[in-house]
Simulated assay, not measured.
Amino acid sequence: MSTVPAASPVSSPTTGAHASSCTGRMNMSGGQGAGIVLVLGGLLSQEFGAALATSLFPRAGAAGVVTLRLALSAVVLLAVCRPRIRGYQRSDWAAVVAFGAALAGMNFLFYQSIARIPLGTAVTFEVLGPLLLSVVMARRTASWLWAGLALGGVALLSRSGLGQLDPAGVAFALGAGVLWAAYILLSARTGSRFPRADGLALAMAVAAVISLPIGITSSGSALLNPVTLGLGAVVAVLSSALPYSLELLALRRVAPSVFGVLSTLAPAIAAVAGYLVLGQTLSLLDVGAVALVVAASAGAALTARR
Protein backbone atom coordinates (compact mmCIF):
# COMPACT_ATOMS: atom_id res chain seq x y z
CA MET A 1 0.00 0.00 0.00
CA SER A 2 1.09 3.34 -0.16
CA THR A 3 2.07 7.36 1.90
CA VAL A 4 0.32 10.57 0.29
CA PRO A 5 1.14 13.54 -1.82
CA ALA A 6 -2.29 15.08 -2.16
CA ALA A 7 -1.58 16.32 -5.65
CA SER A 8 -1.07 12.85 -7.04
CA PRO A 9 -3.98 10.66 -8.13
CA VAL A 10 -2.00 7.67 -7.09
CA SER A 11 0.35 8.09 -4.21
CA SER A 12 1.57 6.30 -1.19
CA PRO A 13 -0.88 5.94 1.58
CA THR A 14 1.31 6.11 4.61
CA THR A 15 2.96 9.43 4.57
CA GLY A 16 1.40 12.73 3.72
CA ALA A 17 3.74 14.52 1.52
CA HIS A 18 1.27 17.39 1.40
CA ALA A 19 2.95 18.55 4.60
CA SER A 20 6.38 19.85 3.88
CA SER A 21 8.52 17.71 6.19
CA CYS A 22 9.72 17.04 9.69
CA THR A 23 13.17 17.77 8.42
CA GLY A 24 12.54 20.82 6.32
CA ARG A 25 16.06 22.01 6.94
CA MET A 26 17.51 19.54 4.45
CA ASN A 27 18.94 21.32 1.44
CA MET A 28 17.84 20.53 -2.06
CA SER A 29 20.60 18.76 -3.92
CA GLY A 30 20.98 16.43 -6.84
CA GLY A 31 19.10 16.45 -10.13
CA GLN A 32 15.87 15.10 -11.49
CA GLY A 33 17.46 11.73 -12.24
CA ALA A 34 18.23 11.26 -8.56
CA GLY A 35 14.69 12.31 -7.70
CA ILE A 36 13.23 9.69 -10.04
CA VAL A 37 15.41 7.03 -8.42
CA LEU A 38 14.13 8.14 -4.99
CA VAL A 39 10.50 7.94 -6.09
CA LEU A 40 10.98 4.45 -7.51
CA GLY A 41 12.87 3.42 -4.38
CA GLY A 42 9.98 4.59 -2.25
CA LEU A 43 7.49 2.64 -4.36
CA LEU A 44 9.62 -0.51 -4.22
CA SER A 45 9.97 -0.21 -0.45
CA GLN A 46 6.27 0.38 -0.01
CA GLU A 47 5.03 -2.51 -2.13
CA PHE A 48 7.64 -5.02 -0.97
CA GLY A 49 6.72 -3.96 2.57
CA ALA A 50 3.11 -4.87 1.79
CA ALA A 51 4.24 -8.24 0.44
CA LEU A 52 6.24 -8.89 3.62
CA ALA A 53 3.22 -7.88 5.68
CA THR A 54 1.14 -10.48 3.83
CA SER A 55 3.65 -13.17 4.75
CA LEU A 56 3.17 -12.16 8.41
CA PHE A 57 -0.58 -12.82 8.38
CA PRO A 58 -0.24 -16.46 9.52
CA ARG A 59 1.62 -15.22 12.62
CA ALA A 60 -0.57 -12.30 13.71
CA GLY A 61 -3.48 -12.01 11.28
CA ALA A 62 -4.21 -9.06 8.99
CA ALA A 63 -5.61 -6.90 11.81
CA GLY A 64 -2.64 -7.63 14.04
CA VAL A 65 -0.11 -6.74 11.35
CA VAL A 66 -1.93 -3.46 10.64
CA THR A 67 -1.83 -2.65 14.34
CA LEU A 68 1.92 -3.30 14.51
CA ARG A 69 2.56 -1.22 11.42
CA LEU A 70 0.50 1.77 12.56
CA ALA A 71 1.73 1.68 16.16
CA LEU A 72 5.40 1.40 15.26
CA SER A 73 5.07 4.02 12.51
CA ALA A 74 3.41 6.39 14.99
CA VAL A 75 6.28 5.94 17.45
CA VAL A 76 8.83 6.75 14.73
CA LEU A 77 6.95 9.79 13.39
CA LEU A 78 6.25 11.24 16.83
CA ALA A 79 9.90 10.81 17.80
CA VAL A 80 11.20 12.40 14.61
CA CYS A 81 8.62 15.18 14.17
CA ARG A 82 8.01 15.99 17.85
CA PRO A 83 4.77 17.82 16.96
CA ARG A 84 3.51 20.72 19.06
CA ILE A 85 0.14 19.91 20.64
CA ARG A 86 -0.82 23.27 22.15
CA GLY A 87 -2.35 26.30 20.51
CA TYR A 88 -4.79 24.52 18.21
CA GLN A 89 -8.56 24.89 17.96
CA ARG A 90 -11.17 22.16 18.26
CA SER A 91 -11.66 22.20 14.48
CA ASP A 92 -7.95 21.50 14.00
CA TRP A 93 -8.13 18.43 16.22
CA ALA A 94 -11.29 17.31 14.44
CA ALA A 95 -9.34 17.37 11.18
CA VAL A 96 -6.52 15.31 12.72
CA VAL A 97 -8.96 12.74 14.14
CA ALA A 98 -10.75 12.42 10.78
CA PHE A 99 -7.39 12.09 9.04
CA GLY A 100 -6.27 9.39 11.47
CA ALA A 101 -9.57 7.51 11.16
CA ALA A 102 -9.25 7.50 7.36
CA LEU A 103 -5.65 6.29 7.66
CA ALA A 104 -6.62 3.46 10.02
CA GLY A 105 -9.63 2.41 7.94
CA MET A 106 -7.68 2.50 4.69
CA ASN A 107 -4.94 0.28 6.07
CA PHE A 108 -7.34 -2.18 7.69
CA LEU A 109 -9.38 -2.57 4.50
CA PHE A 110 -6.30 -2.89 2.32
CA TYR A 111 -4.71 -5.55 4.51
CA GLN A 112 -7.99 -7.47 4.64
CA SER A 113 -7.97 -7.32 0.86
CA ILE A 114 -4.43 -8.63 0.34
CA ALA A 115 -5.21 -11.42 2.78
CA ARG A 116 -7.75 -12.64 0.20
CA ILE A 117 -6.60 -11.61 -3.30
CA PRO A 118 -3.20 -11.11 -4.99
CA LEU A 119 -1.31 -7.95 -4.04
CA GLY A 120 -1.08 -6.55 -7.57
CA THR A 121 -4.80 -7.06 -8.15
CA ALA A 122 -5.68 -5.44 -4.82
CA VAL A 123 -3.60 -2.33 -5.56
CA THR A 124 -5.12 -2.12 -9.05
CA PHE A 125 -8.62 -1.98 -7.56
CA GLU A 126 -7.49 0.33 -4.77
CA VAL A 127 -6.05 3.04 -7.02
CA LEU A 128 -9.46 3.51 -8.65
CA GLY A 129 -10.42 5.67 -5.65
CA PRO A 130 -7.64 8.27 -6.04
CA LEU A 131 -8.01 8.05 -9.82
CA LEU A 132 -11.71 8.94 -9.64
CA LEU A 133 -10.92 11.78 -7.25
CA SER A 134 -8.34 13.14 -9.69
CA VAL A 135 -10.81 12.94 -12.57
CA VAL A 136 -13.55 14.72 -10.63
CA MET A 137 -11.26 17.48 -9.34
CA ALA A 138 -9.69 18.09 -12.77
CA ARG A 139 -13.10 19.05 -14.20
CA ARG A 140 -11.91 18.36 -17.72
CA THR A 141 -13.68 16.30 -20.33
CA ALA A 142 -10.42 14.58 -21.23
CA SER A 143 -10.16 13.29 -17.67
CA TRP A 144 -13.21 11.12 -18.15
CA LEU A 145 -11.43 9.38 -21.02
CA TRP A 146 -8.83 8.23 -18.51
CA ALA A 147 -11.61 7.01 -16.22
CA GLY A 148 -12.99 5.00 -19.14
CA LEU A 149 -9.56 3.50 -19.77
CA ALA A 150 -9.36 2.47 -16.11
CA LEU A 151 -12.80 0.87 -16.34
CA GLY A 152 -11.50 -1.04 -19.36
CA GLY A 153 -8.74 -2.38 -17.12
CA VAL A 154 -11.31 -3.47 -14.55
CA ALA A 155 -13.34 -5.14 -17.30
CA LEU A 156 -10.23 -7.08 -18.31
CA LEU A 157 -9.75 -8.20 -14.73
CA SER A 158 -13.37 -9.34 -14.69
CA ARG A 159 -12.94 -11.29 -17.90
CA SER A 160 -9.67 -12.87 -16.82
CA GLY A 161 -11.01 -14.30 -13.60
CA LEU A 162 -12.75 -11.88 -11.28
CA GLY A 163 -15.15 -14.73 -10.56
CA GLN A 164 -12.20 -16.66 -9.14
CA LEU A 165 -11.29 -13.85 -6.77
CA ASP A 166 -12.74 -13.62 -3.29
CA PRO A 167 -15.58 -11.06 -3.60
CA ALA A 168 -14.85 -9.80 -0.10
CA GLY A 169 -11.22 -9.16 -1.09
CA VAL A 170 -12.34 -7.09 -4.07
CA ALA A 171 -14.83 -5.17 -1.92
CA PHE A 172 -12.16 -4.47 0.70
CA ALA A 173 -9.78 -3.16 -1.99
CA LEU A 174 -12.46 -0.86 -3.43
CA GLY A 175 -13.32 0.34 0.07
CA ALA A 176 -9.64 1.06 0.71
CA GLY A 177 -9.63 3.08 -2.52
CA VAL A 178 -12.55 5.20 -1.31
CA LEU A 179 -10.74 5.88 1.96
CA TRP A 180 -7.54 6.59 0.05
CA ALA A 181 -9.37 9.39 -1.78
CA ALA A 182 -10.71 10.65 1.57
CA TYR A 183 -7.18 10.41 2.99
CA ILE A 184 -5.85 12.68 0.23
CA LEU A 185 -8.50 15.32 0.90
CA LEU A 186 -8.00 15.13 4.66
CA SER A 187 -4.23 15.27 4.19
CA ALA A 188 -4.66 18.60 2.43
CA ARG A 189 -6.98 19.92 5.14
CA THR A 190 -4.69 18.82 7.95
CA GLY A 191 -1.58 20.11 6.21
CA SER A 192 -3.15 23.57 6.00
CA ARG A 193 -3.71 23.62 9.78
CA PHE A 194 -0.48 22.07 11.11
CA PRO A 195 3.12 22.97 10.23
CA ARG A 196 5.54 20.60 8.53
CA ALA A 197 4.39 16.98 8.97
CA ASP A 198 3.04 17.52 12.49
CA GLY A 199 -0.49 16.77 11.35
CA LEU A 200 0.58 13.48 9.81
CA ALA A 201 2.45 12.41 12.95
CA LEU A 202 -0.56 13.20 15.13
CA ALA A 203 -2.94 11.48 12.69
CA MET A 204 -0.73 8.38 12.72
CA ALA A 205 -0.98 8.37 16.51
CA VAL A 206 -4.77 8.56 16.24
CA ALA A 207 -4.74 5.67 13.75
CA ALA A 208 -2.58 3.62 16.12
CA VAL A 209 -4.97 4.26 19.03
CA ILE A 210 -7.94 3.21 16.86
CA SER A 211 -6.16 0.07 15.73
CA LEU A 212 -4.90 -1.15 19.10
CA PRO A 213 -8.20 -2.56 20.48
CA ILE A 214 -8.90 -4.29 17.17
CA GLY A 215 -5.42 -5.77 16.87
CA ILE A 216 -5.29 -6.91 20.50
CA THR A 217 -8.75 -8.50 20.28
CA SER A 218 -7.86 -10.21 17.01
CA SER A 219 -4.30 -11.35 17.69
CA GLY A 220 -3.76 -11.11 21.44
CA SER A 221 -0.38 -12.22 22.73
CA ALA A 222 0.81 -13.05 19.20
CA LEU A 223 1.64 -9.37 18.85
CA LEU A 224 4.23 -9.69 21.62
CA ASN A 225 6.14 -12.53 19.99
CA PRO A 226 9.71 -11.25 19.49
CA VAL A 227 9.93 -12.52 15.91
CA THR A 228 6.56 -11.01 15.03
CA LEU A 229 7.52 -7.71 16.64
CA GLY A 230 10.81 -7.66 14.75
CA LEU A 231 9.21 -8.41 11.41
CA GLY A 232 6.46 -5.91 12.20
CA ALA A 233 9.14 -3.26 12.72
CA VAL A 234 10.62 -4.13 9.33
CA VAL A 235 7.16 -3.78 7.75
CA ALA A 236 6.69 -0.40 9.43
CA VAL A 237 10.05 0.81 8.11
CA LEU A 238 9.53 -0.54 4.58
CA SER A 239 5.89 0.53 4.29
CA SER A 240 6.01 3.86 6.12
CA ALA A 241 9.26 5.34 7.41
CA LEU A 242 11.51 4.63 4.41
CA PRO A 243 9.01 5.51 1.61
CA TYR A 244 8.07 8.66 3.54
CA SER A 245 11.66 9.81 3.77
CA LEU A 246 12.41 8.97 0.13
CA GLU A 247 9.29 10.80 -1.08
CA LEU A 248 10.18 13.93 0.88
CA LEU A 249 13.67 13.91 -0.63
CA ALA A 250 12.26 13.21 -4.11
CA LEU A 251 9.82 16.12 -3.93
CA ARG A 252 12.83 18.43 -3.54
CA ARG A 253 14.24 17.22 -6.86
CA VAL A 254 11.32 16.53 -9.22
CA ALA A 255 8.18 18.42 -10.14
CA PRO A 256 4.96 17.24 -8.45
CA SER A 257 3.59 16.25 -11.87
CA VAL A 258 6.57 13.94 -12.45
CA PHE A 259 6.17 12.54 -8.96
CA GLY A 260 2.47 11.90 -9.60
CA VAL A 261 3.07 10.08 -12.88
CA LEU A 262 5.82 7.90 -11.40
CA SER A 263 3.57 7.04 -8.46
CA THR A 264 1.06 5.49 -10.87
CA LEU A 265 3.46 2.57 -11.25
CA ALA A 266 2.29 1.27 -7.85
CA PRO A 267 0.00 -1.49 -9.24
CA ALA A 268 2.73 -2.81 -11.53
CA ILE A 269 5.36 -2.79 -8.78
CA ALA A 270 2.87 -4.44 -6.40
CA ALA A 271 2.33 -7.21 -8.95
CA VAL A 272 6.09 -7.78 -9.19
CA ALA A 273 6.42 -7.80 -5.38
CA GLY A 274 3.55 -10.28 -5.11
CA TYR A 275 5.24 -12.56 -7.63
CA LEU A 276 8.75 -12.40 -6.14
CA VAL A 277 7.86 -12.53 -2.44
CA LEU A 278 4.57 -14.43 -2.37
CA GLY A 279 4.69 -16.45 -5.60
CA GLN A 280 1.51 -14.79 -6.90
CA THR A 281 1.22 -15.03 -10.68
CA LEU A 282 -0.87 -12.96 -13.07
CA SER A 283 -2.27 -14.04 -16.44
CA LEU A 284 -1.59 -12.03 -19.58
CA LEU A 285 -5.05 -10.48 -19.30
CA ASP A 286 -4.30 -9.52 -15.70
CA VAL A 287 -1.07 -7.85 -16.82
CA GLY A 288 -2.99 -6.00 -19.52
CA ALA A 289 -5.55 -4.85 -16.97
CA VAL A 290 -2.84 -3.52 -14.67
CA ALA A 291 -1.19 -1.74 -17.61
CA LEU A 292 -4.47 -0.04 -18.54
CA VAL A 293 -5.05 1.21 -15.00
CA VAL A 294 -1.45 2.45 -14.75
CA ALA A 295 -1.82 4.28 -18.10
CA ALA A 296 -5.14 5.79 -17.01
CA SER A 297 -3.68 6.99 -13.71
CA ALA A 298 -0.65 8.51 -15.43
CA GLY A 299 -2.89 10.26 -17.96
CA ALA A 300 -5.14 11.59 -15.23
CA ALA A 301 -2.10 12.92 -13.35
CA LEU A 302 -0.87 14.77 -16.43
CA THR A 303 -4.34 16.12 -17.25
CA ALA A 304 -4.88 17.35 -13.70
CA ARG A 305 -1.53 19.12 -13.67
CA ARG A 306 -2.21 20.84 -16.97
Score class of each variant (00 low, 15 high):
W180D: 06
A208L: 05
V170P: 00
W144F: 14
A301L: 00
R305M: 10
S73W: 06
L224T: 10
L265S: 05
L165G: 05
G30C: 10
G177C: 06
L72H: 03
V97R: 01
S192F: 08
A51N: 03
A101V: 11
A60F: 04
R139D: 05
A266H: 00
R86G: 14
A7R: 14
L70H: 02
G33C: 08
G279Y: 03
A17E: 09
R84P: 07
R90W: 10
S20L: 15
Y244S: 11
R86Y: 10
L285V: 11
R305L: 08
A147E: 08
D198C: 04
R59F: 15
V10Q: 00
A182C: 13
A208P: 02
G100H: 05
L40S: 02
A98Q: 07
L179S: 08
G215S: 08
S158E: 09
N107W: 12
A147P: 00
G105C: 10
G191Q: 02
S113L: 10
R69L: 15
A176Y: 04
S257T: 15
I117H: 05
G61T: 03
M26Q: 12
T14V: 13
G35K: 06
R196C: 06
S219A: 12
S2H: 14
R59E: 14
A201D: 03
A155N: 05
Y244D: 10
V96S: 01
V234Y: 05
P5A: 14
R139F: 07
A300V: 11
T121L: 13
P226Q: 02
A173P: 02
R159T: 12
V272K: 04
A300Y: 00
W144C: 09
S218R: 09
W93Y: 11
L251P: 04
L162T: 08
A203I: 06
S221A: 15
I114D: 07
G129M: 00
G100I: 10
A63V: 11
L162W: 14
Q164W: 13
Q32A: 15
W146N: 13
R196Y: 07
G152R: 09
A173V: 05
T54H: 05
Q89A: 15
L251G: 06
P195R: 09
L132N: 00
A222Q: 12
R193P: 03
R140W: 06
L44V: 15
L151H: 09
V178A: 11
V136S: 04
L132W: 07
F57T: 01
N107M: 09
G199L: 06
S8A: 14
V76T: 12
L185P: 02
S187V: 09
W144H: 07
A255G: 11
